[in-house]
Amino acid sequence: MNLEDQGKKVETEWYNHPTIVTNCIIGLIAVIIILSQSYAVNHHLSTSDIFISIFNHNSIYLLSLVYFVFLKFSFGKKYFNYLNVFLILLYFLIMVTSLLTVFQSFSLTTLLSFAIHIILFVYLFHTFFRGTRVWKEFNLQQSPFNEISNDGYFYSVMILSIIFLAVNLISAVTFDGVILSLLDCFYVILFSRYVYLYRVFMDRKEKVGQRENLFDVEKVVDTMHDVGKKVENFVEDVHLDQAIDNVTEMVSDLKEEVVSQLSKKDTQGIKKKKVESQKKGNVDKKERKNVSSKAIKSIKKDQDKGGE
């Protein structure tokens, strides 16, 4: 029954086809409601018994019927997430009432009923909220109940419902009760199968999404590889390596020329500076001589004037 291994053969069996399963559930609910009412009339039950017991037994089926009938219409498909919230709330209430029933009349049937309903509620919560904002906002991926596999949930519900059926059949007094107990068991198994198929669909959708993401990365790697090959081909075609070598040689030659010219300019500059400095020095010497001769002359004049 492992759907993930079967691949495309999933939709051939009736219990693996969601449409057939939902149709079976709708049909089964209709049969349960009609049979329970007809049995009540046959057994000449009072109106109070019908309203209290039969209606109580059928109320859950009526509300589930509303859910599955809405799924057949475009309105229900559009507001599928809202319908799931309604279903989860319904099964939460059923879980709470079954817990209260355990306190009211403690027995194996009430305990089994509570166990089935609590597992169904947790299963619904962790299946129908997948891929929705509630899953992301409340980080339901980190929930410990998320680690239980889909098969684990389904088979636990199935086994518990079969045990519950066995206990009911042991305590059955009338043939009508036997039929109703069997139909109740079939409904629980079909309902859990519907939830199982939805989770399989969501898991498959997540895997496909992951594969698409991986494919994008691979695509990027392939394109980079292609670009690299194209560059290599271009380099080979255009002999770019030779051109690069030529350019480098030219650059080195230019460099040498520039360096040599710079060095020449420097030497010329130094020589000029030397000549200029020499000239300056000669000029300075001449100036000094003139100044000193003038000074000597002035001193001599002063001396002559003083002698006179």
Partner: peptide, 22 residues
Amino acid sequence: PACGSSSSLYAVECMSREFNFS
């Protein structure tokens, strides 16, 4: 409370009573 077990729904005495959800 209502009758809880489907098997004894039409019997004279109900085997177990459950919370009246309806």
